[in-house]
Simulated assay, not measured.
Amino acid sequence: MPQPSSWFSSPADAATRLAEAGYLADATTATTAYLAGALEKPLLVEGPAGVGKTELAKAVAKVTNAELVRLQCYEGLDEARALYEWNYKKQLLRIQSSQGSDQEWSATHDDIFTDEFLLTRPLLTAIRREELTVLLIDEVDKTDVEVEGLLLEVLSDFQVTIPELGTVSAVRRPFVVLTSNATRELSEAVKRRCLYLHLDYPDAEREREIVTSQVPDLEERVAVRLVETISRLRELELKKAPSIAESVDWARTLVALEIGELDEKAIADTLGVVLKHASDQAKAVKELRLRS
């Protein structure tokens, strides 16, 4: 079993093993993934939606047989949802059951602030695990700035302070991946504690490799045409440009419909697989001069 300081033996090993999980990493991605494990530093992955940021964390977990612990960030996320909270209902029941007994309040207080009453959330769960763990902090840019302060203690020392129990330090540091769509600038304090990787849409050749690896039944010439069309769609000013996952979904759709020629009609008929806004579809039909 690999040690937490050596999730991958080299950048080449990272590239090979990630590819086995269906994640085709370029040299920069493979090197950064290797260093995140070797240096035991969190990895901040930034880029537009749908370029494989979350999938990178999933692939690392898969190829290392690690448990994936995911914290999905959103506006309004607080400490109780990210770190831990006390099971107040259970504590109240314990307090009620001790009433009328000779037990002093101080003893009752100490009794109800124990592991038995602790509800661990993703950050604390990952810190306390002794097995290999990948901690995915997804879309961190969607949280409030205040939440970053909570992350600093975890990312700096891999420890969490619980006033009633003391400081909980990681026995085995997790492989931490933070993803961001760059909807807001993260603090320098958070960035300073992380390695940084920017992922963008792949070039045509790499995207074709990704699509054909995921959908091997797709004819080569159709794959080339699909990637060319996806590239043209991304050049338009759309509400939501098609992601790599949507390219793969489109490929699967074409195979399912037994479409052997991706002509204008075929594109128009299946456009809903890759464009999820009516205005985007209308713009694509106009700009690409599609006919239904």
Score class of each variant (00 low, 15 high):
Leu119Gln: 13
Thr143Val: 15
Thr133Lys: 04
Leu135Lys: 07
Ser101Cys: 08
Leu132Asn: 09
Ala126Thr: 07
Pro122Phe: 04
Gln99Val: 09
Phe113Tyr: 15
Gly100Pro: 03
Ile95Pro: 01
Lys142Phe: 05
Ala126Trp: 00
Asp141Phe: 04
Arg128Phe: 07
Gly100Asp: 08
Leu124Cys: 12
Glu131Leu: 00
Gly100Arg: 08
Arg128Asp: 14
Pro122Ala: 15
Leu132Met: 12
Val147Pro: 00
Gln103Thr: 13
Asp115Thr: 10
Leu118Met: 10
Asp115Lys: 03
Pro122Leu: 13
Trp105Phe: 14
Trp105Lys: 07
Trp105Gly: 08
Asp110Gly: 14
Thr125Glu: 15
Val145Trp: 03
Ala107Ser: 12
Leu123Asp: 13
Arg121Glu: 12
Trp105Arg: 10
Ile127Pro: 05
Glu146Val: 03
Val147Leu: 15
Thr108Tyr: 05
Asp138Glu: 06
Ile95Leu: 12
His109Trp: 13
Leu119His: 13
Asp102Ala: 15
Glu130His: 13
Leu118Trp: 13
His109Ile: 11
Phe113Asn: 02
Val145Lys: 06
Val145Cys: 02
Ser101His: 05
Thr114Leu: 11
Thr125His: 11
Asp111Lys: 15
Thr114Ile: 10
Leu135Tyr: 04
Val145Asp: 12
Thr114Arg: 00
Pro122Met: 09
Ser98Arg: 07
Leu124Ala: 11
Lys142Asp: 04
Thr120Val: 10
Ser106Met: 05
Arg129Thr: 10
Glu116Val: 02
Thr143Phe: 02
Ala107Leu: 09
Ile137Glu: 05
Thr133Cys: 14
Gln103Phe: 05
Glu146Gln: 03
Pro122Ile: 08
Gln96Val: 05
Asp110Asn: 15
Glu116Phe: 09
Val134Gln: 01
Glu116Trp: 02
Asp141Lys: 00
Ile137Gly: 05
Ala107Arg: 12
Ile112Glu: 05
Arg121Asn: 08
Glu130Arg: 15
Asp138Phe: 03
Leu118Tyr: 14
Leu136Tyr: 03
Leu124Gln: 11
Asp110Val: 01
Gln103Ile: 12
Thr114Phe: 10
Phe117His: 06
Gln103Glu: 14
Phe117Met: 04
Thr108Trp: 07
Ile137Tyr: 05
Thr133Ile: 08
Glu131Phe: 02
Asp141Trp: 01
Val140Phe: 03
